[in-house]
Design a protein around this nucleic acid. Sequence first.
RNA 1: GUGGGUGUAGCUCAGUUGGCAGAGCACCAGGUUGUGGCCCUGGGGGCCGAGGGUUCAAGCCCCUUCACUCACCCCA
Length: 413
Amino acid sequence: MSSIQKIKGFADLFPEDSRSFTHMEAQARAVFGRYGFGELRTPLLERTELFAKGIGEDTDVVGKEMYTFTDRGDRSLTLRPEATAGVLRAAIESSAIEPGRATRLYTFGPMFRYERPQKGRMRQFHQVNAELLGSAEPQADVEVILMLEDFLSSLGIADLCFELNSLGCRECRPGYRAALTAYFEALDHAKLCEDCRRRMHTNPLRVLDCKVPACKALVADAPVIGEHTCQGCRGHFAAVLSLVDRAGLKYTLNPRLVRGLDYYQRTTFEVTSGAIGSQTAVAGGGRYDGLVKLLGGPDAPGVGFACGMERLAMLMDKPEAPCPDFFLAVTDTREGTGALDAALLLAHKLRARGLSGECDYQAGSMKSRLRHAGRIKAKKCYILGAEEFDAGQVTVKDMEEGDQLRLDISAFD
RNA sequence: GUGGGUGUAGCUCAGUUGGCAGAGCACCAGGUUGUGGCCCUGGGGGCCGAGGGUUCAAGCCCCUUCACUCACCCCA
C-alpha cells in the first residue's frame, strides 16, 4: 500500500492489452496507406491557446477538461485533449496545406482529458485520427467515412451503427439556432430540465441531445436542421448521402447528432456501439471548413475523424500471444557445473538463427520445467540436464508430438 | 464537480446474530528415482485498503480517510 501507484484515470498496458493496440496501429497504417494517407506525429504538449481557439472556448473540453499548467518559462501549456488542432497547427506551420489540393494525414497516440473516469473513459486515452485537408467536395467527406468503415471492419468489429447529420454552415446555422430557441421559448420551457433551460440560450443544439425523458419528449417536435440549412449545405449533404449509399454503406440519419467541438460544419458523423457501457461513441468526426484559417493558415477546408482505441479494444477479439519457438530448460541442479551458462549461450545461438524463446536462469525439476514449457506454449523444449551437460549435448523435445532427440550443443555453432 | 457500489492470498471471490482467516485458479513439492497437459495428495503464502473508536473479543458495528469501480455531466 505504501508503494507508488499510477494516477487516476491512467493505465498500464501489459502485453495482453498492448497487443490489441499494436494490432490497431498496424491495421490503421495498412488501411490508411491504401487511401494515400501519411503518418504525422505531433507533440503531446501544445500552447494552451491552440486548443482554446481550435476547439472553442465554450466547449466542455476547453472549459473544464484540459490538463493545463505553466512551464518554467511561464508559458501556458496543455496536454492535447484531441488531435485535430495539433495536426492542423503542424500542417500550417510547415506549409503543408495547399488550398485546392488534398493533403491526407493520420496520427495516433494518447490524448488527455481531466474527467471522472468510468467504463470506456480514461484521463489518458488513445485515438486514431485522420484528416483530409484542402478539399471542400462531398467526395472528400465520403472518402473519409468509407476509410473509417474500412478500418473498423479490418479489426473484425461488427454491430456498429453509422449515424450521419449535417449541422449547416456559418451562414445558415444561426438561423436554425434562432428557430430552436424560439421553439423552446414558445413551449412551456419550465418543463425542460435545469441544464436545458440554460442551454436553450447558450447552445440550443445541445438540448437536442439531452437524455432526460421530459426533454426528449419536447424535443421530438423541435424544428429539424434540414429544413433550415442553406441551398449549398443541402446540396452538399444530399451528395454525401447519395455517395455513401452507392458505396453500399448502411447508415442512419440522426438530425440530433450534435458534436461537442465547436468547429464542425456541414457533415458530422458518429459510429456507435451498444456493447461498451454507457459511453456509446466509438468514433466521431465531420467537416471543419474554416478551422484552418481560424488557426492562422490558408482558407482551406477539412474533414476528418477520431476513433477511440480503448473503446475499439473492448469490441475486438484479443490477439493471441505468440507461441515461442523454444523454451530452454535447465534440469541440472548440481551446483557450479556451468549448465546455466551453457543454456544462456545456446539460447543466444538459437535466437541468432531467428528462433524466439526464453531460457531458464535457475535449474529446476524436469516436471516443473516441462510444465512451464507447456504453459507458455513453446513449440520445442530444449532440455539441459546433468547427463546432457556432461556429454556436451542437449535434448530437444517436440511439445506437440512428444518425441525427442539428443543433439550435440556444438552443432548449433 | 455530484451520486451509487466495492476494497480479504499473486488472480477471481466466499466469510452467518461479532467468537481460531477460507475456497477455486496460479505457484512449489510428492504420487511417477529425468519428461508437460488429465487425475490424486501435501505445502508455502494474509497489517482482512489505511487511521481512530465501541467491545472480554472486530474482516464483520461506529467515525474518518484513501483507492478502485459504475453512473450523471460530456465525449473517443
